[in-house]
Computed example of a mutant assay.
Amino acid sequence: MASDGERYAFVAHWLDPHSSIIWKYQLMFFTADNSIAMYDIKNKRSFLKRTPYPSIRPEDLYIGATVTVYSRQLKVVGYDDEYTKKRLEHIQMTFALIKPDGVEKFGELLTEIYKHGFVLKRLKMCTMSPSEAREFYKPHSQEPIFEEMVLALCSGEVIGMEIIGDDATARWLKLIGPRDPGIANLEAPNSLRARFGRDKINNALYGADSKEDMERLRTLFFETPGFGKCPALQKDSTLCIIKPHAVLAGIAGEIIQHIMQSFNISGMESFNISHVDAAEFCEVYRGVVPEYTLMVQELSSGPLIGIVVSGVKNPVASSDCEGTTEAPPKTIVGIFRDFCGPADSEIAKIVRPKTLRAMFGIDKVKNAVHCTDLDEDGLLECQFFFKTHPKK
Rank of each mutant, 00 (worst) to 15 (best):
D4M: 12
R7A: 10
F10V: 11
V11M: 05
L15D: 03
I22H: 12
K24N: 14
Q26M: 10
T31F: 01
D40H: 11
K42N: 05
K44G: 08
Y53S: 13
P54F: 04
S55Q: 11
I56F: 08
D60H: 15
G64D: 04
G64M: 04
L74T: 04
V76A: 05
L88Y: 07
Q92M: 12
M93C: 11
A96W: 12
D101Y: 01
I113E: 02
F118V: 11
F118N: 11
K124E: 12
M125Y: 04
E132D: 14
A133W: 01
R134V: 06
K138I: 11
P139Y: 01
Q142I: 06
P144V: 10
F146A: 08
C154F: 06
E157H: 13
E162D: 13
E162H: 01
I163F: 02
W172H: 10
L173K: 11
R179A: 14
D180H: 08
P181I: 01
G182N: 15
N185C: 07
E187R: 09
R198D: 13
R198H: 14
D209A: 12
K211H: 07
E215K: 11
R216N: 05
L217V: 07
L217K: 15
T219P: 00
K229M: 12
C230W: 00
C230L: 12
C230G: 11
L233D: 04
Q234P: 00
K235E: 14
K243G: 13
K243A: 13
H245T: 04
Q257C: 08
S262G: 09
F263T: 09
N264R: 05
M268G: 04
M268N: 02
E283F: 06
E283N: 07
V284A: 15
P290H: 08
Y292V: 03
T293Y: 10
L294D: 15
L294I: 03
V296K: 02
V296I: 14
S300D: 09
G311K: 02
V316S: 12
C321V: 13
C321Q: 11
T325H: 02
T325F: 00
V333K: 02
F336P: 01
F339N: 06
C340Q: 02
G341Q: 03
P342A: 15
E346Y: 00
A348E: 13
I350P: 00
V351F: 01
R357K: 05
A358C: 10
K366D: 02
A368K: 03
E376I: 10
D377T: 06
G378M: 09
L380H: 03
C382L: 11
K387V: 11
H389V: 04
